[in-house]
Design a protein around this nucleic acid. Structure first.
Lengths: 215, 215
DNA sequence: GGCCTTCCTGACCGTATGGTCAAATTCAGA
DNA sequence: TCTGAATTTGACCATACGGTCAGGAAGGCC
């Protein structure tokens, strides 16, 4: 809810700064878009969650699509940051292991954002197709080169880097996107700290051993 | 001349049998729900895709939600069928390998259905929560027992069966749900036959080696 | 043909949605 | 204190949506 700088958003002053207001609205929008999808989300509901009148939303974000676009771009930035870990590593065990940790942390801390991203891609990426074609494509080719170098250096088995990346994305993202299913199979309760660590450990074990980077 | 079972929807006869009509509508609905989500899909668009007037849809499926429910249940049945392979196997290499093959085939042949399923779960499973709690839960516990037996018999490493199952689901489903992203990273073209075989092989190699079932 | 069930569909309805607007309110700076 | 830009908001609008309905058309069966 509130991670504002000084006070709660609707307590002291009646007027908000652009930054606060936009952050408040973006947070509400992320939640509603994640729960209902773009088509199912309504500006009225987002306004209610944010605790603002609907007209106020349109003051900061002229259209629903523009608001949605910002939500998607925001999670994409977070997504990309986790990628840096890949480069700083000196081998697959450290690099891929840390990447799994980072992406699992995103799935846990930004579950709503992950869902919005997944939904966007699933529906054909209508608003971020250019990102897929530019930024994501470049990032992917770069990482493929790294993996291929590791293979050449004999640090891991000769698997197809693309399918390895897909597996990393799929597995980590699954804990956010299908969190509800996992929760249900967990007796209705969200994974606790131990179970999250357990998940990370199992994923890392299987994948790192699977690509011949450990043991 | 033609009272063909499935193919040409609007050729000879003006009147359709319930079965044909429902199949036609369900196919159109699956496509539209996959592309737009439940909230974004409109009965009008489904009708257009099916080549029928909107009122005709409501004759066979009284409400949008009822239509949606049938689409979801349909893909869940397919999903469950692939599960049988697990039981017939005598070891992890055969069982999990065949399961991956089967689920990858579903991702390829029923991409739309997979997306609808993913979307449903992502949004909190509003219409199939009971399935998750009954059928899916039972299936999962059964499979966990099988995996635990394999572990006890020393046929694979002692990993957590739950997280292994999640990884199987995640990885195979990813090729349907994120098919658009994969396609973009593939230069804009869908995976061809060879690439699909390649995907299966890589996934099986990593996971089976990762759990110590091969090599 | 006559009849009855099933199927088809254009026209219609109440509602909810995204978006607009102009008047009111707030507040920093002169 | 005054002024003007930034912000807030209730009321409003056109449209699109899910769903209804009455009447017509098709076809099986006697």
């Amino acid at each position: 809810m509130a991670e504002t700088t000084a006070a709660s958003p609707k307590a002291t002053s009646k007027k908000m700064r652009r930054q606060e207001a936009e952050a408040l609205i973006l947070a509400a929008a992320e939640k509603v878009f994640a729960e209902a999808g773009f088509g199912g989300a309504t500006m009225q509901l987002i306004a209610d969650v944010a605790g603002l009148p609907k007209a106020n939303l349109h003051y900061y974000f002229p259209t629903k699509e523009l608001l949605y676009r910002q939500v998607v771009q925001r999670i994409f930035q977070i997504w990309l940051q986790a990628a840096d870990i890949f480069d700083q590593a000196e081998g697959p065990e450290e690099g891929i292991g840390a990447y799994i940790d980072a992406k699992m942390e995103i799935s846990r801390r930004h579950a709503d954002g992950s869902k919005v991203w997944a939904s966007e891609v699933m529906h054909g990426a209508p608003v971020i197709q250019d990102y897929l074609e530019t930024t994501l494509t470049e990032w992917t080719t770069g990482r493929i080169e790294v993996i291929e170098r590791w293979i050449t250096e004999g640090r891991m088995a000769a698997i197809d880097p693309r399918h390895l990346l897909y597996m990393l994305w799929a597995t980590t993202q699954h804990y956010a996107d299908f969190g509800h299913q996992i929760e249900t199979l967990n007796g209705g309760a969200p994974l606790d700290d131990v179970q999250w660590e357990d998940a990370k450990f199992n994923i890392k074990t299987i994948i790192l051993r699977g690509i011949g980077a450990i043991e």
